[in-house]
Design a protein around this nucleic acid. Structure first.
Lengths: 152, 152
DNA sequence: ATGCGTGCAAAGTCTTTGCAGCTTC
DNA sequence: GAAGCTGCAAAGACTTTGCACGCAT
């Protein structure tokens, strides 16, 4: 199953142009790739690069890094720090797609879960400080049952 | 004001020994440094290195990286991913010291806030999956009032 | 026509690792 | 005494940047 698209190429173009920037084939393909991603899947810059190459889309790693960072700043993508040492990106979905992460420090296992209270709490906190919310994530770090069985 | 110590050098030694590991002067000094840190302050590996050098404690960067990662895995330190591209560490405090982060993608400003519901929610989620909680953090990413005034 | 965006290659930053010698248990 | 730990230097992984050319507006 694929997540429903929340951001069209036209909307992206309009927003870019409003800032004096340009729509490009690369940006459109990157947006489309994330929109076609099954729910819960997230890509690193390298993952995205490979996936595009398999579709015969040659987009340089530089452009990918530049684009995902830009889209994260625009609120189109969520930038995730999971257990590994590189960032992952996924489409920033509204409730009820929004999910959070439970991470094991020993096995690096990541479990996703949903919780409606988190967004409500985040909205309230952001309001208090005048922030516009792009994304919120509850990261629970702990030790999984498998991890508890190993010494470290 | 300094946070109250929740983990003594003796307790650290006992826990290390129980795993067949050793207590060392370096580990004790690193623990002490975090315990003397004002509430809300967090250090990167580099920060910690500089701070120790100012106290004439020569501990190599390698050892610092190895030690903070170990302490994070033990649940003694929290490993934070703030707006910058390197990790920060702080003592992992129980309620009511526990705090969360509101981060601006444009200005990199970070605001800390507390919320009692988060820990409760985290505990419940972790229980469901059999995880032991070491740390939980609500990361709200958005645009601050100052950021909203700039084009990007 | 202007100036933003891309690709390439090089550089940069943060972090990890191999190894010899030292230290703790 | 055995095994873990440290410091050093080198390597590694991921990400950013300078520049010339191309493309969207």
């Amino acid at each position: 199953m694929t997540t429903e698209s929340v951001y069209t190429a036209e909307a992206l173009k309009a927003e870019l142009n409003s800032k004096g920037w340009r729509m490009t084939p690369q940006r459109e393909k990157i947006l489309r790739t994330f929109q076609n991603l099954p729910e819960g899947e997230h890509l690193s810059a390298e993952d995205l690069h490979h996936r595009l190459q398999q579709e015969n889309e040659n987009i340089s790693l530089s452009t990918i890094y530049r684009t995902v960072k830009m889209m994260a700043r625009m609120g189109i993508l969520r930038e995730l720090e999971l257990a590994e040492d590189h960032k992952h990106y996924e489409l920033n979905q509204p409730r009820p797609y929004h999910h959070h992460h439970l991470i094991c420090v020993r096995t690096n296992k990541v479990i996703e879960f949903k919780n409606d209270q988190i967004l409500t709490i985040s909205q309230k906190v952001a309001d208090k400080y005048g922030f516009q919310v792009l994304d919120c994530e509850l990261r629970i770090v702990g030790i999984s049952p498998e991890g508890q069985r190993s010494v470290f």
